[in-house]
């Protein structure tokens, strides 16, 4: 009898201590979250995470630079000829093979909108901002963009064609809110 009581009692007694200890640990864990989360971007910073951009004022052949999360974003309204030229490139000629269509997204109707090309305007080599000129050599040999820092040439799909840059100009996450309204910063 005595032996059983001695054996059982500690377990029953310990239970309350285990419960209290667990509750303290769990509570501390919950309280740790605000202490960690306060270092994440605050609401005012997050409100700048996406921008809306209306492309209806853009003229054919023109490029506009929008500022998004502190980075330049190239939004280019390409001519029919430029689109055709981008489409015609042989993938074997490319350092970072990608078709022009792979670099576009669909509008609200589900069809690709090849006239608008959106890229992040930062050279993938060492971070300079490439120059734009579709008509002149200032825009590089492929009449897209040319990076003046170390001479990377991008074509009018933003793909690297010549020079030290390892990859094509990056495409930011964006989507079409309407036929002409882009939201940059959120995935489609």
């Amino acid at each position: 009898m005595d032996a059983t009581t001695d054996k059982e009692e500690p377990t029953r007694r310990d239970f309350i201590h285990i419960a209290s200890g667990t509750a303290v640990v769990v509570g501390t864990g919950f309280f740790a979250w605000p202490l960690i989360d306060q270092m994440n971007p605050a609401a005012d910073t997050l409100s700048l995470a996406t921008i809306d951009f209306d492309v209806s004022d853009l003229e054919e052949g023109q490029q506009v630079v929008a500022k998004w999360q502190g980075k330049p974003v190239f939004i280019r309204y390409r001519t029919k000829a430029e689109i055709a030229e981008a489409d015609a490139v042989d993938l074997d000629d490319l350092k970072d093979p990608q078709t022009d269509n792979e670099r576009l997204i669909a509008g609200p109707d589900g069809k690709l909108k090849p006239e608008y090309l959106v890229t992040i305007g930062i050279c993938t080599h060492l971070g300079c901002v490439p120059l734009f000129d579709p008509n002149d050599e200032k825009g590089g040999e492929y009449r897209g963009w040319f990076c003046p820092c170390h001479g990377s040439h991008y074509d009018n799909s933003g793909r690297i064609r010549k020079g030290p840059a390892p990859t094509n100009l990056e495409i930011p996450p964006y989507r079409y809110m309407s036929d002409t309204l882009l939201q940059i910063g959120t995935e489609a």
Partner: peptide
């Protein structure tokens, strides 16, 4: 609510 439960548990611990 959490603190109330914790207080009850700790009071139990204290009595034990």
């Amino acid at each position: 609510l959490y603190l109330l439960i914790l207080a009850i548990l700790l009071y139990g611990s204290y009595r034990a």
